[in-house]
Each structure stands twice: as C-alpha cells, then as structure tokens.
C-alpha cells in the first residue's frame, strides 16, 4: 500500500518576472525519504516552502495530506516539522525555552512538552546548554537545536532544508543515524542537500533540480545506472596540463569530464583504462579509481559540481 502524502503537478513559482520553479511534477509516498538535489538557486528551498505552507505558488496543483496548503495552512502545518535553511530561533530565549514555546505554538500542553524536552535535548546533544541563551550557541549547535525543535510536535512529515550544513562530521553522522530511525518509525522525510553522500545514505528516491526544473528522478542507484558508468577514473596532470591532455584521454573511455583540477574518465573498468593510459606513455601525477556516485550524475545533468 503506497499512499501519496504529497502530490505536485505543474508547480510554478515566480518572483516578479523571475521563474524560480518551472512547472515541476512529483509525488512523495508515505514513510518515504525523498531528496532534492541541485546547485545553488535551483529552486529547492522555494519548493520546500510551498510544501510547508509558508509560501504561495504562482500556478500548478499541490496537495499535502490531501489538502491544499494555501487554503488549509494552519491545519497542514500541524502535521509538519520544518527545518528552514535560514535559522529562525528565538534569540531572546534559552535552549529549553525555545523548545517549550515552539510546542506551545502548536497548542500542545505544557505537561506534554515538558515530558519531551529531555529527549529532544539529548537528540540535539545540548543537555549541557539547556539554560543557555540561544545567542551564545555555536552555529552547529543552533542547527541541531532547530532540528530538535522541529520534532517537538511529533510531525508526520519532516521537512529538512540542508539539515547538516554547518555540522561537524561527527554530528552529521549522528544526525543521519537519528533520521534513519525516524524513518524506520514511519516518518516521511523531505530533504534538500548539497552532499551526495548524504543523499545516497538517506534518500529512497530523489529528484535532481536545476534552474527551476527537474532534470531527473529516481533512487540513487537508478540515477547512477541511468546517467553514469559503473566506475570512474580520476587523473591529474597538474593544473595547466589537464585541459591540454583532455583530447588525448577521450579515446580511452565512454565519456570524460574536464574539471579545473582533474579529468574524470567514465568507464566500466577503471583499472584497465589506467593501464592503457600508462601503456600509451602518458604519466598522470596522481590517479584514483572509484565507483560512480551521485556526484557524477549531478555533474552529468547540470554540468556543474554540487558545491560551487
């Protein structure tokens, strides 16, 4: 039984004349973890805000939990936990007070919220900072608090706009683990991210967006199969040399990408290609054999690397 919690058809959002989202279609199933991937300005946050009933669309059909977010804003938002890209913690309050009052905005009873606060603080690893004013937290701590805050109302759908930006590697892995468990408990997740590893780890299905349009859609494995080869060989000839060497590399593989610092060769067997290159008398300064990743899909689809 796969019920669609979110359905979007022909969604368009314009800011004045500028088209930020250009007629996109997708749907999100219950208990699914759904990702948005795309370079800066692709329209990910805009789409997220429309789904979170905090922004109006210009045209198209959107249904969240069977209702239109423009008409049933408060009722839909009651089901959502939202982690916005830009922080909006209450800087005049402490960590605990932030969690508490956010729950109150949902109308939850004080008793209910208080019973959850310890868990949430543990989730955010902020037990020691519970009575600290939010102003005095580090950037990563604020991020973790916003994530914990989004859970105070036990949402059905969690909307995370770049949740791990600004977190240290350890905190990222802990967060992934927590999100994984929430997913196992049946929560539906919507995630935007610039990190390929994050998307591969967390998302059952994702869409790649660029300039307001969807470039491709599928599971990470499907996307890789569809848009890339099994393996990649990365070679470096030194910064000035890469461009010059590119034409000579083309004949060794299916497809190449020339980046400022390296050349990527797409092939089914990277080891073999490397041997051929060396055998032909070329001597790259360094070389790396790896499996294709979403990074390569992204590069293929948008012509850009993810973090520009």
């Amino acid at each position: 039984m796969s019920e669609n919690l979110i359905e979007v058809q022909g969604l368009t959002k314009k800011y004045g004349e500028f088209v930020a989202v250009n007629g996109i279609d997708f749907h999100v199933r219950k208990s699914e973890s759904f990702g948005f991937l795309g370079p800066n300005g692709a329209g990910k946050s805009t789409t997220m805000r429309i789904l979170a009933a905090t922004s109006r669309r210009t045209s198209g059909e959107v249904s969240v939990l069977g209702r239109d977010p423009e008409i049933h804003g408060p009722q839909i938002r009651a089901h959502l936990g939202v982690v916005p890209q830009e922080g909006n913690l209450d800087v005049q309050l402490t960590v605990t007070e932030n969690l508490y009052i956010y729950g109150r905005y949902f109308g939850l009873s004080s008793k209910f919220i208080r019973s959850k606060i310890d868990d949430l603080l543990e989730f955010a690893q902020l037990e020691e900072k519970r009575d600290t004013k939010v102003d005095a937290l580090s950037g990563g701590m604020k991020r973790r608090l916003i994530i914990a805050r989004s859970l105070v109302s036990d949402p059905d759908i969690l909307i995370l706009d770049e949740p791990t930006t600004g977190l240290d590697p350890q905190a990222r892995h802990i967060l992934w683990d927590r999100l994984f468990r929430l997913k196992e408990d049946g929560m539906t997740l919507l995630i935007t991210t610039h990190y390929m590893d994050e998307a591969e780890q967390l998302c059952d299905r994702l869409i790649v967006m660029d300039k307001g349009s969807i470039m491709s859609e599928g599971s990470p494995a499907e996307l890789i199969r569809e848009h890339s080869t099994r393996e990649v060989l990365e070679v470096r000839f030194g910064s000035e040399q890469n461009v010059r060497m590119a034409p000579a590399m083309e004949k060794f593989c299916d497809r190449i990408e020339v980046l400022p610092d390296r050349i990527l060769l797409y092939t089914e067997d990277a080891e073999a290609v490397l041997e051929e290159i060396v055998g032909a008398g070329h001597s790259p300064k360094t070389s790396l054999v790896r499996r294709s990743s979403l990074e390569d899909v992204f590069l293929r689809l948008t012509g850009r690397s993810l973090i520009d």
Binding site: A52, Q75, R77, A78, L80, P84, D90, V91, Y102, F106
Partner: peptide
C-alpha cells in the same frame, strides 16, 4: 525572523 518561526507552526 521570529515571526517566520511562529508562522511555520500551526
């Protein structure tokens, strides 16, 4: 951005 936070709730 306090009101942004409030209006993201119900």
């Amino acid at each position: 951005r306090l009101y942004h936070g409030m209006l993201a709730t119900s």
